[in-house]
Design a protein around this nucleic acid. Sequence first.
DNA 1: CAGTGAGCGAGCTTCCGCTTGACTT
Length: 773
Amino acid sequence: MIRNLVIVESPAKAKTIEKFLGKDFTVKSSFGHIRDLAKKNLGIDIEKGFKPEYIISDEKKKVVDDLRKSANEAETVWLASDEDREGEAIAWHLSEVLKLDKKKTKRIVFHEITKDAIQNAIKNPRGIDYNLVNAQQARRILDRLVGFELSPILWKKVKPALSAGRVQSVAVRLLVEREREIFKFNSTSFFKVNGVFDGKVEIKAELSDKLKNLKETLDFIESCKDATFTISDISKKPSKKTPAPPFTTSTLQQEASRKLNFSVSQTMTIAQKLYEAGHITYMRTDSVNLSDTAIDAAKKTICEEFGEKYHNPRRYKTKSKGAQEAHEAIRPTYLDNHKITGSSAEQRLYELIWKRTIASQMSDASIERTVVTINISTSNYKFVATGEVILFDGFLKVYFESSDDDSEETGKDLLPPMKAGQVLTPKEIIANERFTQRPARYTEASLVKKLEELGIGRPSTYAPTISTILNRGYVLKEDRDGIERKYVSIVLKKGKVTKEEKVEITGSEKAKLFPSDIGIVVNDFLVEYFKNILSYNFTATVEKEFDDIAEGKIEWAKMIDQFYRPFHKDVEKTLRESDYSKGERSLGPDPKSGKEVIVRIGRFGPIAQIGESNTETKEKPQYASLLKGQLIETITLEEALKLFSLPRNLGLYEEKEVVIGIGRFGPYVRHASKFVSLKKDDNPLSIPLERAIELIEEGRKKEREKVIKVFAEDNTLQLLNGRWGAYLNHKGDNFKLPKGTDASKLTYNDCLKIIGEQKPTNKKKKPQGKTKR
DNA sequence: CAGTGAGCGAGCTTCCGCTTGACTT
């Protein structure tokens, strides 16, 4: 017999709460939403006022059955999901699905997981807020309508199995537009002049202005030969630095990316582990709020470890409006725990969270900036030396937030004592040609930051959204090598001016997001026909209306109707009038044949094509796939023509032809009817025979190592080496080895046992298998 | 490891936000 059943969203939260409530209360979890719109036929009856059809998915049936059983037994059911739109909807779905009797059902919310807060909530129950529920239903239905009406248009007009949605399509748009800014960007050069002056310590100064061109720079450097350098002014300015607020999902993803090189999904998986182990508070939150308990604990830790003057209590306000303070910021549950046990990634992420939280409750750092101005007797330009002294480190003792732009660090060293009027002797004056910087490509984390600024997506969806646009092939996450760039360097040393041309590497990228051709074509198509939904403020606009529904100012079905009618008209018009979209672009005539060279999206990806097929003359065009990194939008005629040199015969090896080509899995070398993929750095257009042979041999070695053991008793049973280590193969079925098995020691009987006990891992998905995002 | 939308053709793909496992060749 259960007297009181409390239902929350997450099992970890259930466990914590149960401790506070005593034995009269049983706490269970709904594991998020328990039902959703049916996937067939939209799941919405548009004719009947957008009536939603909700379905409990197979995975959730067990959870629901269990909850139903407990609810029937219970005297009182307490629905304790979050206070926001989604949480209210969860409570409502529960009350509907479990057919809860209103008299014995109570809705409660708490803002903090503490004994007091929870007991207080129990004392102040309320009913379900149907306006809030309706706002959620409107959000859900709008997203379904947009996603399930736009995606099929893409299947017909671009390519099957593509997708579009309120969030993902705007994310792709951001990347496409940034890439276009980069195409268009024209870098201009200027000269930056640095002076090094003698002193007890070297004094490094920078010319206050950038010089426009080479002539001006040479004139200036010449003029420095006979110049006197005098300190004209020394000013000292106090300044301070303030700690960043505690982590939200988005800021945690950004810092873990910058400081630890984690992808956003890695960060979330590790944070989930920390949460389940009880080390940190909930990791999906947009709140920067710390509980009173946490603020007190931080005070204690800071005072004990660093002293009272390092402590400065602060309360942070979440910028995104609304009553979303249901969650706290992401923080350690026990602030006196500096470190935890766990994997190295877990430890590092925990430490980051600990430092950020502690720092947010520490004093400002106070800094003194010294600016020394140095006059040049032969010029109106001035040198400026900047020094920084930290007078009090404050929060900097534990933590400093990184920033995205990796601009060159300017020398902010300690300056030696100096006084105005002092004459300085130049040791060296260097003018280097510099270039204006193109806009930066997005990383996963900087894209999340941008989406959050636009109010698009939620903490629980940032990582899945990135996976979606990667999985659809709209976006590639890649490293790119930089290119060499020449620059001029002029040095004045010991009265002599030398001019030199130097080379630097520029534009290299690591783990950056690049839009693909398909991403660009889909984006352009959607922007042309659905400008409204693709606009950056579409979400903000509809959010306002959802808020109005939540406040009872408008009726949800009316809002949806007003959106849907014009939208659906656009959908029909687009299906009727738009052309098949393959991103075609003409590059001009082929110098050999005079036929037109075009690039476009083909059935299997972007291709270049010479000539057109002609049914009368039975003429067929030539085709060649584009290489990785080449885009329809930017490829030149010369680059495209080079692609037609594939497949290319490099010569003979062991009396058989070595051929380079591009296939389904990218560039390959073929030899004796075996295929080996080229490595990332190999260019199929220029790879030499020796390197190809190297790859062939590598391929042979791998194949030799692939088979660990074949059993004499049954040669269809093999132990093989795969991407994730050893596995068993039997007549085409694969089997996982139990954890910690030493593959080389397995006997025939051991293997038979494994096969008997396990299901093959490579079987086709169940017909009703869940979709992976 | 081909092919580069017609031209036999069923039925499928897809959204966003809540939550965890199950699972990966």
